[in-house]
Structure formats: structure tokens, C-alpha cells
Simulated scan of single mutants.
Amino acid sequence: MSFPASTHRAGFDGASTGTIAPSVTGAVAPPYQVRPGELRDRRPVEDLVFSRLGQLPGDACFRDNLQSARDIVTNMLGIDNDGRPTVWLLTDGPEIIGCTALLAGTLAPGWSEEQRDEPALSVLALFTDPAHRHDRPSRFLIWWALDHASPGRGSYSNSRQTR
């Protein structure tokens, strides 16, 4: 099932956590939920990342380089950054089918000092279950992150102080 990128604003119910709603094109998205990751989620998140790394093309060296992203996600479960959860999980009922780690602020490389001073969220890592690739869950996580960080919509931007 394909969802056009232009529908990302309409793809959510307006809350920073909650059910992903039907798109404006009339296609109905799977009933995914986004919630903060907790320490108790460590094992299923590790299994998801292991499954994803095993499905990636390329050599073992390439997959080994992604281990740092895996470590970021698993070690930051249950940790807050700037008063907000760092790791967010995409779930289908009780099953975790995706995860992302978000850091408050802009990482220095490639951005001017003025740009780094603006409120922002940086995606440090994102993994999805390859068994759900037909629904393109990474797209849902990115849509959610955009909504979560957008001014006037997501809970992140509403309480973030600008400099």
C-alpha cells in the first residue's frame, strides 16, 4: 500500500502519540500507534533491530557500522532528552514494528550556528521490522516525527523554548 508524501499532515490524528488516521487520498493506514520506549521494551527492540540488520543488503562491514545506531536505540530506552522521551516505538497492537531515537537540537556538522540555535529534533536512528515492509512503517515514523516537531502541532514544539 502506498501513501503519497504530500499527505503526511493528514496522516495523524493531531496528537504526538496516538493512532495514525486515514490519509486524505482515502487510503486507510494500518492502525499503528506511536508511544515512548521503556526499559521493558529492550528485548523486543533488540530482536527487531537484529531482524532488520540481517535483512539489509551489503557486506558484514556495512551492517557492523550500524551497530552504533542499534546501541543508541537500545541504550536510550526509557531515557528523557530535554524532558521528552528519546526513543519512540511504532506498534501494531502489542507488537513493536519500528523504533526511532530523537535528540533535541541539531547536530553540528553541516549546519550554521544560526541553524543550530533553532529548536529542532534530530533523528539519530530508525529501524523497522522487515516483515512489515509492505506497509512502509519507516514512512509512518518519519511522518509522526515531522508532526511531533512541527510548530503549533506537536507536543515537542509547543513547549520548547527558543533562544
Results as ranks from 00 to 15, higher is better:
55 Q>L: 12
71 D>N: 08
156 Y>I: 00
105 G>T: 11
158 N>Y: 01
16 S>Q: 02
24 V>G: 09
97 I>C: 10
109 P>M: 04
111 W>Q: 06
19 T>C: 03
144 W>C: 01
152 G>I: 01
95 E>K: 14
155 S>P: 01
159 S>H: 05
103 L>N: 01
162 T>V: 13
125 A>Q: 14
14 G>M: 09
129 D>P: 05
114 E>T: 08
76 M>P: 00
151 P>M: 04
110 G>I: 05
12 F>S: 10
75 N>T: 07
111 W>K: 05
85 P>A: 15
26 G>V: 02
87 V>G: 06
140 F>A: 03
94 P>N: 13
133 R>E: 15
83 G>Y: 03
112 S>I: 01
44 P>N: 04
76 M>F: 12
123 V>K: 03
138 S>R: 14
44 P>D: 08
84 R>D: 15
141 L>A: 09
66 L>P: 00
73 V>N: 05
100 T>F: 09
50 F>N: 10
143 W>V: 12
35 R>P: 04
110 G>M: 08
133 R>D: 14
76 M>H: 11
105 G>H: 13
66 L>S: 05
50 F>M: 01
3 F>S: 09
159 S>V: 11
140 F>W: 06
14 G>I: 04
79 I>C: 09
60 A>V: 14
152 G>R: 15
105 G>S: 01
2 S>E: 15
130 P>C: 07
141 L>Y: 09
66 L>A: 00
68 S>V: 12
25 T>P: 02
20 I>V: 07
8 H>F: 05
28 V>Q: 12
128 T>K: 07
135 D>S: 14
94 P>C: 04
74 T>V: 14
152 G>H: 07
8 H>W: 15
137 P>W: 07
85 P>V: 05
37 G>Q: 04
147 D>G: 15
157 S>G: 03
92 D>W: 01
161 Q>N: 13
109 P>F: 03
109 P>N: 03
87 V>Y: 03
69 A>T: 04
115 Q>K: 05
123 V>M: 14
83 G>Q: 01
103 L>T: 00
27 A>E: 14
99 C>M: 01
24 V>I: 08
72 I>S: 07
130 P>H: 11
162 T>N: 10
44 P>M: 08
52 R>Q: 12
125 A>N: 11
133 R>I: 06
45 V>K: 04
103 L>D: 00
81 N>Q: 11
68 S>T: 00
82 D>C: 06
106 T>I: 08
77 L>H: 12
50 F>A: 11
67 Q>N: 07
148 H>I: 12
125 A>I: 11
85 P>W: 03
106 T>R: 14
17 T>I: 09
106 T>G: 00
113 E>F: 10
95 E>M: 07
63 R>D: 03
99 C>S: 08
135 D>F: 13
138 S>N: 06
22 P>H: 03
56 L>E: 11
14 G>K: 10
128 T>N: 15
10 A>M: 11
21 A>K: 06
92 D>Q: 11
65 N>H: 11
21 A>D: 02
111 W>I: 02
18 G>T: 00
53 L>D: 14
18 G>Q: 10
107 L>N: 05
100 T>N: 03
63 R>F: 02
23 S>I: 00
42 R>F: 05
115 Q>T: 14
129 D>S: 14
38 E>T: 00
97 I>L: 15
14 G>C: 08
97 I>Q: 05
40 R>D: 08
110 G>P: 02
105 G>C: 06
